[in-house]
């Protein structure tokens, strides 16, 4: 493996409300290597967005607060540095794109102005220089008529073009890591594929690591190098894309894969769901397996203890007491 650029260690983020502490992210650890495409998968409320926002310290405080852990960028703990030092990291070393490009771009600033801004702040470029650079970035993102487009406002762009402008903005300072928080969810299916393909091309040419947050397993299988499965604020299983899709061990991962409809299955196979509800706050506060209520393999021990992540093969971790029990289902699913 190449050099580790980001190492998240035991990161925990909570929200403090009138009802008490809500654990959004609970003790997660993973590494991101140079140029790697990492996917963070989980259902709504599983803490994937909050964990990503925590890396850049963008969780709204109050009510959110990072309560523990380290975020090592090279050897610097991003959670320890000053606000000013953090500003120098954001948009320059680590940048981020968001789910809804329509609301994530400032409606009263021109596209060119918004793309040029990080260049002017971080690279100290002059106005003309930054605009020229912004234009070339936009044309790299396959936006036609750049000279004209750059003077327009976000509302004059289509959704796909807005997201491309966001990507151009985030990539403007050639960051080492790009965090993409469900970047294609708000887009058309055809545009989704294009945007992700362009993002991937950009990664390959700049060697920027991508941390993609999504619940689209298809995208993950196609592009990701490694996958983390999040549930209730914790990582249940993680490994290479091959490990997760061809050798899944956690009952939840199996459930997710089973839930993806496939064209080669007979109609009678139907649509599969994972029964039950996502882990509630009460579930998260108790000392048991988070998935226990929805798991068909659950036994007494699952109700009494939290399973530790155990290594199945190199780099493939699974937090389940009964990872062995799933062998039969795995066989059946992947047949």
């Amino acid at each position: 493996m190449q050099d580790t650029v980001l190492s998240v260690q035991h990161l925990s983020t909570s929200f403090f409300t009138d009802e008490g502490e809500l654990k959004a992210v609970d003790d997660i650890s993973y590494d991101v290597h140079q140029g790697e495409f990492v996917a963070l998968i989980g259902e709504s409320g599983s803490g994937k967005s909050v964990s990503a926002l925590s890396i850049l310290r963008l969780v709204g405080d109050p009510p959110g607060k990072i309560v523990g852990g380290k975020v090592l960028f090279h050897d610097t703990d991003l959670l320890q540095i000053s606000d000013k030092e953090m500003q120098e990291v954001r948009g320059s070393k680590i940048s981020m794109i968001f789910q809804e490009p329509a609301t994530a771009l400032n409606p009263v600033m021109t596209i060119g102005n918004q793309i040029a801004e990080p260049l002017r702040v971080h690279k100290k470029m002059s106005k003309q220089q930054a605009f020229r650079e912004a234009a070339s970035l936009l044309s790299k993102m396959k936006i036609p008529n750049v000279e004209q487009r750059i003077k327009q406002y976000p509302m004059e762009f289509s959704g796909g073009m807005q997201q491309r402008a966001m990507i151009a903005m985030a990539m403007s300072c050639q960051p080492e890591i790009l965090i993409a928080d469900e970047p294609t969810t708000a887009l058309d299916v055809t545009v989704q594929a294009q945007v992700l393909e362009e993002l991937n091309q950009l990664r390959l040419s700049t060697n920027t690591a991508i941390l993609l947050i999504t619940h689209n397993l298809g995208l993950v299988a196609r592009y990701a190098d490694s996958v983390k499965i999040m549930y209730g604020g914790r990582i249940l299983e993680m490994g290479s894309t091959y490990d997760i899709f061809e050798n899944p061990h956690h009952p939840y991962t199996l459930g997710l894969i089973r839930a993806v409809p496939r064209l080669d299955q007979p109609k009678s196979y139907g649509l599969h769901t994972i029964k039950g509800e996502p882990a509630s706050q009460e579930d998260r506060m108790m000392n048991n397996c988070l998935f226990v209520k929805r798991c068909k393999y659950a036994t007494d021990i699952c109700w009494k203890q939290q399973p530790k992540a155990e290594e199945i093969s190199e780099g493939h971790m699974c937090a389940c007491f009964h990872a062995d029990f799933t062998a039969a289902e795995r066989e059946e699913l992947l047949r």
Partner: peptide, 9 residues
């Protein structure tokens, strides 16, 4: 939030 993520003061 986007502006914050760009590292603006």
């Amino acid at each position: 939030r986007t502006a914050w993520s760009k590292g603006i003061k």
